[in-house]
Amino acid sequence: MDGMTKAQVDKAEGRDFALGAGPKRPRDAATLMLLDRKGDDILVLMGRRHSSHAFMPGKFVFPGGRTDPSDSRIPVTDSLFPEEEAKLIGTVARGSAARARAIALSAIRETYEEAGLLIGQKGPFATGKADWQGFVEHGVQPSLKPLRFIARAITPPGRVRRFDTRFLSAWRSDVAVELPDGGPTNELEELMWLPLPEARQADIPAITKTILEELEQRLAQDPLLRPGGPVPFYRMIRKRFVREIL
């Protein structure tokens, strides 16, 4: 999508997003590309959004959603690697470390809520926050150490909803508990582990395909996804979609 004009992006995403007039400020969001190795293949977890949703209805997406600032106060057993934390802090207003932490933790929370996968380590965990009671009940201490910052993208203007999304990744081996019936919400259905080439051919938004291509390129250069890798950033500047490196 790099270099596409706004008209070209609108056409490519016409079936992905509901269009709407008026300026809308992008909201902070995070999504998690959870990966697994099966032989020579790398699989990614995706689920289909319900057709009634205004944002990407019926599309296959990664677990994720809008950031809850209060997530920054959730205790964790391990923090982000400094290289990852610095890049995330660079994406938020006034370089707020708390906001960056909330973004990362929201990806972990949404993965539990939408897919029933709890990332962290087994052990006693306590918090009064309702959205995190699954971690309390199943004895999982959330951990930010497994997360890698893969890409960032801001929804172009002219959509009914706009998000400033950070695409993070982790490995299935970082999941402490997998609930057999999925998460407590009904945001996603048809959860599937797809080989990366198959995921790119699924019914996915154009930006999701672009981010999957970025992920494949990064894995080709660094199969272990070590901390501090390059992070592409997609956004609209002067009516043209551009790619930068954070």
Rank of each mutant, 00 (worst) to 15 (best):
F125Q: 10
A126V: 14
A126P: 01
T127W: 04
G128K: 12
G128S: 13
K129T: 12
A130N: 11
D131A: 14
W132I: 05
Q133A: 11
G134T: 11
F135S: 08
E137V: 12
G139I: 04
V140T: 10
Q141W: 06
P142F: 02
S143R: 03
S143Q: 04
K145C: 02
K145S: 06
K145A: 13
K145T: 01
P146I: 07
P146L: 09
P146C: 09
L147I: 13
L147W: 09
R148V: 07
F149I: 05
F149H: 15
F149R: 05
I150L: 15
I150H: 05
A151N: 09
A151L: 03
R152Q: 15
A153G: 13
T155K: 04
T155P: 00
T155N: 02
T155R: 01
P156E: 08
P157N: 08
P157Y: 06
P157R: 11
V160Q: 10
V160T: 15
R161Q: 11
R162M: 09
R162H: 09
R162N: 06
D164C: 13
R166L: 10
F167P: 05
F167C: 09
L168H: 11
S169N: 07
A170N: 03
W171E: 11
R172S: 13
R172Y: 09
R172G: 12
S173E: 15
D174W: 04
D174S: 15
D174F: 09
D174Q: 07
V175T: 08
V177W: 00
L179G: 10
P180C: 10
P180V: 09
P180H: 12
P180S: 14
D181I: 02
D181R: 15
G183Y: 02
P184M: 04
P184E: 09
T185I: 08
N186V: 04
N186Y: 02
N186W: 05
N186D: 15
E187D: 13
E187Y: 11
L188E: 08
E189L: 06
E190V: 00
E190K: 13
E190I: 00
E190S: 08
L191V: 04
L191S: 00
L191G: 01
M192H: 08
M192S: 11
M192K: 15
P195L: 13
P195V: 05
P197N: 00
P197Q: 02
P197E: 04
A199H: 00
A199I: 05
R200Y: 04
R200S: 08
Q201V: 03
Q201Y: 02
Q201N: 11
Q201S: 14
A202P: 03
D203H: 14
D203V: 07
D203F: 14
D203L: 06
I204T: 11
P205F: 07
P205M: 06
A206I: 03
A206R: 11
T208Q: 00
T208N: 14
T208P: 01
I211V: 15
L212K: 06
E214Q: 12
L215E: 09
L215Y: 14
Q217A: 14
Q217C: 01
R218G: 00
L219S: 12
A220F: 01
D222W: 01
D222F: 01
D222Q: 00
D222S: 06
P223C: 06
P223H: 11
P223W: 07
L224P: 00
R226K: 15
R226A: 05
G228M: 02
G228I: 01
G228R: 01
G229H: 03
V231Y: 03
V231K: 05
P232E: 11
F233R: 15
Y234D: 08
Y234V: 09
Y234M: 07
R235M: 08
